[in-house]
């Protein structure tokens, strides 16, 4: 069929009927896995030594609800802390729960930072949870998470 005719004939039903097979084709294709591939649970355990982080509003995670573009997703993590020698945030870890390598970045801080914050931009392969874990100087782990909907990149 000519593309022009195809467009002309387009309706809800037609679009749906054509999309479904394409999407299932995409899902069947094997995903390549890099040598760093590590599922989220394993990556989290490696950071916390098996401890379960406490969900805390002291960790503020800012990500968009809907990503304009999975290739550039802004992430900001701020942790409430006095950042003194006796009480500070040692590290901020960011995970993308469904990326083949769920680890994005591990930031090691010190009281010389003055404030515990990280802002960067990550790639998300699909709609998923982004998780921020803060490691405190007293050995505690706090966390926050939010789902990010990744829409199709489309015509590019």
């Amino acid at each position: 069929m000519q593309r022009r005719d195809f467009l002309k004939n387009l309706g809800v039903g037609a679009a749906g009927a054509v999309i479904l097979p394409s999407v299932s084709f995409a899902a069947d294709a094997p995903k390549p896995k890099g040598s760093n591939a590590l599922p989220y649970k394993d990556a989290l355990n490696a950071v916390t030594g098996g401890k379960t982080p406490e969900v805390s509003d002291k960790v503020s995670l800012k990500v968009p609800e809907i990503a304009e573009n999975g290739a550039v997703v802004p992430v900001t993590v701020e942790v409430e802390s006095p950042m003194t020698d006796s009480d500070y945030v040692k590290a901020i870890h960011v995970f993308a729960a469904k990326n083949a390598n769920s680890r994005c970045i591990d930031v090691y801080l010190s009281p010389a930072n003055g404030k515990a914050m990280l802002a960067t931009r990550i790639k998300l392969g699909e709609t998923q949870e982004v998780v921020a874990v803060a490691e405190l100087s007293n050995g505690k782990f706090l966390m926050a998470s939010q789902s990010v909907k990744v829409t199709i990149g489309g015509c590019g």
């Binding site: 195809f6 999309i19 394409s22 489309g154």
Partner: peptide, 21 residues
């Protein structure tokens, strides 16, 4: 082929169900 289908689907979203995204 897939790309064209997606473009068409997205174009059509202009006229229906546009709000959800």
């Amino acid at each position: 082929g897939m790309r064209i289908v997606l473009c068409v689907a997205l174009l059509s979203s202009l006229t229906f169900a546009s709000e959800q995204f």
